[in-house]
Design a protein around this nucleic acid. Structure first.
Length: 725
DNA sequence: CATCACGCTGTTTTT
DNA sequence: CAGCGTGATG
């Protein structure tokens, strides 16, 4: 098939597609045909005689690369399917599986996911003597994110904590010790977490010329999608891969960088030309997705960004309506408003699959999900809940993992504790015994300390012996383990029928695989993101609910955005707060640019005041920094339909309970403290943040107050009064 | 030593 | 609303 590039592409896209050699940076606004450009370039390379295996397409998710190659195949040539593609993590994994010895690891190392990491951290914390300071010790998930972020930002723990986790500085020594112990633990047990995959891959590339040579011979043309979402380590990996031949194209959009929590740094895009001085820069600014009013809104949103790289989206599409902002007052009000508007659109002949509801965090849609169920509107939700992370799935998988890495103490512990009467203590004794005596996994039943539990241990041993058969099909292995696990499942979970279905789906997924080990690795690196991935609805028309993160790269004619404004405070001068606002802005940008024709923003405002007025008073934040873009010339501030409002919501609580946070409130004169008789533990009322409790006096000017109704960032306020309650 | 019931705390996003 | 620590019970 001959591809007509001239006809299918605009001049900028054409240039990107036709430039095959040398480094290229494509700055591509939302909806500017970024994927299209990559697809055509793959087709062009192959047409030009490059062999598909010599092309590497790095994307953010494996699904994205699959879809892209599928499209390329449909467009040009079946051979496009053989292009090497995947995520940075899967590439790193591939590199490491065959070369782990270069960094002193066994090739059979096990990959840890986040819950595994947290479990190890917890066991480390348990063994340490921690002196309790004035605040609670950070929870394991917080510790995990500190350690992980330090790796991804390539910062030391101290600097990172000063910057972003200042509330836990009291425990800095402990965290640093946990860091060391955690690293040692991983090494001695042949374990690697997600961050290690990247770190070690880079290390191997940096230190071994022959590996670099080998890889750049294989991957002669490298393309990276969503480059704004890469972190420094990933950028280095790109550098090492491409340094020899310099045939590398990266594509990205700085205003869509929403993974900074993971160390992503959109500045990588602008460092790219420094890394590769010959770089040709191409900008894609014509938008093929949205109407002009939507683009006017999103452009004005980015106009106010602290840091941006000029790029102005335009479209040749005529007409369109202004995006709407609706104060839905309460969560139930919001649910009713959205579901009724959707029903209205259905009456007009629109289809459910043309609509999506987007939000920042998975729990923001809970209320809506209930309402949609009541109204019998079918929907699929993406993001948030992870199939792989549910306990029953992890339990079953753990039985397999211990066979491939018998040092995997995390999985051993999991498996052993499923047996009645075996808990923390006994399981760790058994693991110690097995490591010391060097018995085979299936000999676990021979543990000398066994009493009542010997039956259970024997049964486990029998299962493991069966599973050890090298040639066993993944499906069969999972079935055997499932048979063993089923009684445990029934006993432990009230909702076991649902979970049994999940396990069946897992077994079903395995039926398509040949190698068990490969299947397990794939589950860790490319886990099904939600129930949606595992069991797509039969019904072909359903509404999409999705986190903004999971909606990246997708589009719908009608998009609702649920915008919950908790959490960020512009009055704070701290860097992290400013950063948070900039991140929120980009998040809103990504959400809004998903819409083709109609964009409706909902916010549950608690007051009768217009939103910008609240923001200017300093009550709400987040949105306040880009509030001007919501002014009438770009936004339609319609009020809520009275029909919807009149369904008395008065018996509902206004909003869910908000997080408790630490807030510095100033100034607080010593005399006023004394004269008002305030002391630690007193309840106080703050005009904007509601009820709080005085936690301690910092100095003459400052008192630290715990508020229930604020966000979670450290905040410095100018208010002079706190009313004692 | 395992397990259960209770009360307190702190809420994102993903490989 | 779940995950954690704690204290009582088996």
């Amino acid at each position: 098939m001959k591809v007509d590039y001239q006809k299918s592409l605009n001049p900028a896209q054409l240039e990107a597609v036709m430039t095959l050699n040398g480094p290229v940076l494509v700055i591509a606004g939302a909806g500017s045909g970024k994927t299209r450009t990559l697809v055509y370039r793959v087709a062009r390379l192959i047409e030009h005689g490059v062999s598909p295996e010599n092309i590497l397409l790095l994307t953010f998710t494996r699904k994205a690369s699959g879809e892209m190659l599928e499209r390329a195949a449909g467009l040009a040539d079946e051979r496009c399917r053989f292009v090497s593609g995947g995520t940075f993590h899967s590439l790193s994994h591939q590199v490491l599986r065959s070369r782990a010895d270069l960094i002193g690891f066994d090739r059979s190392f096990t990959i840890l996911d986040r819950p595994d990491m947290e479990e190890i951290i917890q066991s480390i914390v348990k063994e340490m003597d921690i002196v309790r300071a004035s605040i609670r010790f950070p929870r394991r998930s917080t510790i995990a994110s500190i350690l992980s972020k330090a790796v991804n930002l390539e910062q030391n723990i101290e600097a990172l904590m000063r910057d972003e986790f200042s509330q836990f500085l009291e425990y800095i020594r402990d965290i640093q010790r946990i860091d060391v112990l955690y690293k040692n633990y991983k090494r001695s047990n042949q374990l690697m977490d997600y961050d290690d995959l990247l770190i070690f891959c880079r290390k191997i590339l940096a230190e071994n010329e022959h590996v670099r040579k080998e890889l750049s011979d294989t991957y002669q043309y490298v393309m990276v999608d969503e480059y704004q979402d890469t972190n420094g380590i990933q950028a280095d990996i790109v550098k090492w891969l491409a340094t020899e031949r310099q045939n590398v194209m990266v594509v990205g959009d700085d205003s869509q960088s929403i993974y900074s929590f993971r160390g992503a740094n959109y500045r990588n895009m602008f460092d790219f030309p420094i890394m590769f001085p010959e770089t040709k820069i191409i900008k894609l600014e014509e938008n093929y997705r949205s109407t002009q009013p939507i683009l006017t809104f999103t452009n004005s949103l980015m106009d106010q960004a602290q840091e941006k790289y000029t790029k102005c989206l335009f479209t040749k599409r005529k007409g369109g309506i202004r995006p709407k902002v609706v104060n839905v007052k309460t969560d139930p009000g919001q649910a009713k408003f959205i579901s009724r508007t959707i029903l209205g659109l259905l009456n007009e002949g629109k289809s459910l699959k043309d609509m999506a509801v987007l939000f920042r965090a998975a729990y923001h849609s809970y209320e809506l999900e209930l309402e949609l169920t009541r109204q019998a509107v079918p929907f699929v939700k993406y993001g948030g809940f992870k199939f792989m992370e549910s306990a029953h799935i992890k339990d079953l998988i753990a039985h397999m993992r211990i066979l491939f890495n018998r040092n995997d103490a995390v999985s051993w512990g999991r498996v052993l504790r499923l047996i009645n009467n075996i808990g923390q203590k006994k399981s760790s004794n058994i693991i110690k015994w097995m490591q010391k005596s060097g018995v085979q996994p299936w000999q676990v039943g021979e543990w000398p300390g066994a009493g009542k539990d010997s039956q259970g241990l024997k049964a486990l041993g029998d299962l493991l012996r069966q599973l050890t058969d090298e040639n066993m099909k993944p499906e069969r292995a999972l079935e055997l383990a499932n048979k063993y696990y089923d009684p445990i499942l029934r006993e432990r979970f009230d909702d076991f029928p649902k979970r049994q279905k999940g396990l069946e789906q897992l077994i079903n997924m395995a039926s398509r695989k040949r190698k068990l080990k490969a299947f397990l690795d794939e589950l860790m690196l490319d886990p099904p993101s939600s129930n949606a991935d595992v069991s797509p609805l039969e019904n072909d028309s359903y509404l999409t609910l999705s986190t903004v993160h999971s909606a990246k790269g997708l589009e719908w004619p009608v998009v609702f955005v649920i915008w919950v404004m908790e959490g960020y405070f512009p009055s704070s001068k701290s860097r992290s707060s400013l950063q948070a606002i900039e991140e929120e802005r980009r998040l809103m940008y990504v959400a809004a640019t998903r819409a083709k024709d109609k964009l409706i923003l909902c916010y549950p405002g608690q007051e009768e005041l217009p939103i910008w007025q609240l923001a200017e008073m300093g009550y709400i934040s987040g949105l306040s920094s880009f509030i001007q873009s919501l002014h009438p010339e770009v936004m339609d501030h319609s009020s809520l339909d009275n029909n919807i409002l009149n369904n008395n919501f008065s018996n509902f609580s206004i909003r869910k309970k908000q997080p408790r946070v630490i807030v510095n409130t100033a100034p607080f004169k010593e005399s006023s403290v004394n004269s008002s008789g305030l002391k630690q533990g007193d309840r106080v009322k703050h005009p904007a943040f509601g009820m709080g409790v005085i936690s301690k006096f910092l100095d003459k000017e400052k008192v630290e107050v715990l508020f229930r109704d604020a966000g979670r960032k450290l905040l410095h306020l100018e208010y002079t009064t706190l009313d004692k309650v």
